[in-house]
């Protein structure tokens, strides 16, 4: 299936969870905010949310310096 991650289309195996996708992309889930189809996915639900075809994700990383 195809999903869109940060504006770029990519292939993703059926049954992939958001957490798995972050792992595949080497993104640390504790340092990110994930928006799936315009809704924020709470950190504790990342491992339970299974991606569907045509899902759109935006992943942004915590930045705190000033």
């Amino acid at each position: 299936m195809k999903i869109t991650l940060n504006g770029e289309s990519r292939e993703c195996p059926e049954g992939t969870t958001v957490e798995k996708l972050l792992d595949l992309c080497k993104i640390d889930k504790n340092r990110t905010a994930v928006e799936l189809n315009l809704q924020i996915v709470p950190r504790k639900e990342l491992s339970a949310r299974v991606l569907k075809d045509a899902d759109i994700l935006e992943v942004v990383t915590f930045v705190g310096g000033g």
């Binding site: 340092r31 905010a33 942004v60 705190g64 310096g65």
Partner: peptide, 29 residues
């Protein structure tokens, strides 16, 4: 506004009218 190495992030929060910082990052890392 926030910065880290080579990356910066900016957003403008108008409470209740638009999202706040916690809408995006619910709790601190």
């Amino acid at each position: 506004g926030s910065i880290f190495r080579f990356e910066g992030q900016v957003t403008t929060i108008v409470p209740f009218d638009g999202p706040c910082y916690r809408c995006l990052y619910e709790t601190p890392p």
